[in-house]
Simulated assay, not measured.
Amino acid sequence: MRILIVTSQFPIAGEPNRGRPIHQTVRELSTRAEVRVLSPVARYPRWATPRSYLYRASDPDFAVPGCDVRYVDYPALPAVSRPFNGWLCARTLHAPLREFAPDVVLSYWLYPDAFGAMHAARRARLPLVVGSRGSDLRVRDAISRRLTRPVLRAAQRILVVSEDLGRVAVRDYDADPAKIRAIPNGCDATIFHPQPQGDARAALGLDSGVPLIAYVGRLVPEKGLRELLDAVTALATRLTGLQLALIGEGPMRAELEARIAAMPGVRVHLPGAQGPREVARWMAASDLVTLPSYSEGHPNVLVEALACGRPVVATPVGGIPEVVDADCGLLVAVRDPAALAEGLAAALGRVWNETTLSRRFSRGWDAVAADTLRACEEAVTASKR
């Protein structure tokens, strides 16, 4: 089977860890089918780059190990071109789609990527499979919500990373439940596994014998980072030597640096975006991993933290309750620094079995790829009826 994958959520020059779960899926899928990735990237003029995320221009020569990927770009303006981005994206896809001649089009990220893929697939009379990661279904702006609806109607199969997202698709977009396939993320056990905390701290130059809380993800407000700083500040009055690591990049970094400079009693590390092995080392060095998000799909960072034998403290949003229960972590109220501080304190004060935690998830990316291929085969069969 020949599968054309359309997604902007893929490694790109300057951001090699972008879209890591999709990259992992594609790499495994490429061992089972002939796969090509088309990664459409919005091209903004220098005087009008987006402020809501760290914009990276595409580099057509950038290579992703284990993947056949082609980068294409389309012109855009922040906010102004949003209603048209799906159409602009579609225009860049027609020629490379004809060149590859796939059996099915699979697009991750519903708007504008899958909207453009929908029109390209329709023009080529090909079946369409779409995949949602979370925030592309829980969109806040009315334009993107309205343009997402026809994508879900047109798709032969809809892939979601949690059962919760499947319910959102049905409830908010009238998606056909029969088309939905929940395919949870996998975890690379060759990277994310228990390792001695002391060794990990020594490798990172961290103090031993002091509590360390780790956060891994984008530095954006909706991840609950303001609440996290408030909670850690309060917790520092009770825990001497408390440290916090914020691993990732994002538009909130300058704000965080300013707040951290004024925080008493807490040492905060900001190592920036890290590769998988470095993330695993930070997790191993920590006492727990936290994710106080306002919204989530199926956060792979929590699966990876558990695989490293670390308990988690998170909020009960989206697919997080499908990952976290009382045996592996604590769930605390959203946007509540006091509740978060109590949850962190309780988790730090509890004895956790590292081996038991690491066995919570044994699903590899090969299983994710097999489920994805099955959904593509179903879509091809359904399109012939």
Results as ranks from 00 to 15, higher is better:
residue 301 V to G: 07
residue 195 Q to A: 09
residue 380 V to H: 14
residue 16 P to D: 06
residue 232 V to I: 02
residue 335 R to D: 15
residue 70 R to K: 15
residue 110 L to N: 12
residue 378 E to Y: 11
residue 30 S to M: 00
residue 76 A to W: 01
residue 177 P to Q: 09
residue 99 E to Y: 10
residue 125 R to V: 04
residue 298 H to A: 07
residue 23 H to C: 14
residue 69 V to Y: 04
residue 180 I to K: 04
residue 63 A to L: 14
residue 128 L to T: 12
residue 324 V to H: 08
residue 62 F to K: 02
residue 59 D to I: 08
residue 378 E to V: 12
residue 337 P to D: 12
residue 34 E to T: 12
residue 375 A to M: 13
residue 282 W to F: 10
residue 184 P to H: 07
residue 360 R to F: 09
residue 230 D to S: 00
residue 156 Q to R: 14
residue 51 R to F: 07
residue 330 L to N: 01
residue 323 V to E: 13
residue 18 R to V: 02
residue 220 V to F: 05
residue 338 A to H: 13
residue 279 V to E: 06
residue 42 A to P: 00
residue 83 P to R: 13
residue 154 A to H: 12
residue 247 I to R: 12
residue 149 R to C: 05
residue 94 H to Q: 06
residue 252 M to S: 10
residue 253 R to K: 14
residue 158 I to A: 11
residue 163 E to G: 14
residue 161 V to C: 09
residue 287 D to P: 05
residue 311 P to R: 01
residue 314 A to C: 04
residue 379 A to D: 15
residue 37 V to T: 07
residue 118 M to E: 06
residue 353 N to H: 09
residue 215 Y to Q: 12
residue 179 K to Y: 04
residue 357 L to S: 03
residue 181 R to T: 10
residue 3 I to C: 08
residue 280 A to C: 08
residue 178 A to V: 00
residue 258 A to G: 15
residue 313 V to K: 03
residue 176 D to M: 02
residue 258 A to W: 06
residue 360 R to H: 08
residue 135 S to R: 04
residue 250 G to W: 02
residue 184 P to I: 03
residue 384 K to R: 14
residue 99 E to Q: 14
residue 265 G to W: 07
residue 338 A to Q: 14
residue 11 P to T: 09
residue 249 E to C: 04
residue 120 A to V: 05
residue 277 R to I: 02
residue 13 A to Y: 02
residue 343 G to S: 03
residue 90 A to T: 01
residue 233 T to G: 03
residue 91 R to L: 09
residue 258 A to I: 05
residue 324 V to E: 05
residue 252 M to D: 13
residue 23 H to M: 06
residue 227 E to L: 00
residue 174 D to Q: 14
residue 220 V to R: 07
residue 58 S to R: 11
residue 66 G to F: 11
residue 292 P to G: 11
residue 369 A to W: 08
residue 361 F to G: 10
residue 200 A to C: 11
residue 79 A to I: 13
residue 303 V to C: 08
residue 245 A to N: 00
residue 302 L to Y: 01
residue 233 T to P: 01
residue 237 T to E: 09
residue 98 R to Y: 05
residue 355 T to Y: 03
residue 80 V to N: 13
residue 3 I to R: 07
residue 64 V to Y: 11
residue 59 D to W: 03
residue 340 L to C: 10
residue 4 L to S: 12
residue 194 P to W: 00
